[in-house]
Design a protein around this nucleic acid. Sequence first.
RNA 1: GGCCAGAUAGCUCAGUUGGUAGAGCAGAGGACUGAAAAUCCUUGUGUCCCCGGUUCAAUUCCGGGUCUGGCCA
Length: 298
Amino acid sequence: MLHALTGCTAVGKTEWALRWAEERGAEIVSCDSLLFYRGMDIGTAKPTQAERRRVPHHLIDVCAVHEQMDVTRYVSLARQAIAEIRARGNKVLVTGGSGFYLKAFFAPVADDVEVGPELRAEVARLTLEQALVQLRELNPGGLGELDVANPRRVFRALERCLASGRTLMELKAEFAGRPSAFADHEVRLTRIEREPAELAARIEQRVRQMLADGLVAEVERLRAAGLMENPSAARAIGYREVIDRLDGRLRAEQLVGEIAKNTRALVKKQRTWFRTQLPPHRIVEAAALQSSSQLFAD
RNA sequence: GGCCAGAUAGCUCAGUUGGUAGAGCAGAGGACUGAAAAUCCUUGUGUCCCCGGUUCAAUUCCGGGUCUGGCCA
């Protein structure tokens, strides 16, 4: 049995996760795509050292900013961490707001087509149009639901076709039949929600606190450590705006507003994901929470 | 007080050589097979500041007014 707690950014799930885990001797497995990176602390609201002393955390600070993480690697690290925690006889609480990674606990999330670095580099040199031409040649039966306007999706689709020698339709059929990587566990999922107005206020407060805590200096350190080599991390909310500020594309007085605005957009996207991509799950209102026992119907 | 510029979508602005208007951003909705806090898609009727004039027709031209900014006193 795995317990998983999610909710959008700034909803306040961290403290509830800590309490639940602390009271049950559980260990936490993070499900947040940016917490993997060492040094991305303030802008990600990473659990502090003090919080990590309260409850053991896993899948935090597992790689350098310039390294590339992906779901497949996440899944294998998470499986390993969970096995170790179980071997100690402890409960597991998965917590985080990265919807795609969370989905891995319920559904297949990647196929196992190996794409070599040479092939990837070769595909990366193509324009979107060239990639589409090749894809259509390889897929006379059509491209299915592929989002042909999305370069990342198109390039990945082409890589998978070239690497496997199969069509998107064939790959899709096989993918749909795969089990979740955690099919051997029963997973209970709960999501914390909060009133939009209250959440917006918390976001603004949180952004101001991050800046007061030294977000700008953190970004400067990370840049020196190779942040810009990782497009996804460099585009993370809070980081991209500070980079824009440092490079003169944003004025100082715009910083809080921009970060808060983009965080609200993230929250909206998270909500759509939770609604449409996760299985039906328990929803609890943050304002109504008084005890960790309310989180899961045990 | 005088001169000049501006007044158009929540915001910043474009535009209509006169036939009632459109971008970016925000907002809303959505997609999601190895970057997911990423990436991508859909969605724009608003007294075109007010009053009057010219005209078949004015948001567009003309006159007056109001407000905002700048310059001069």
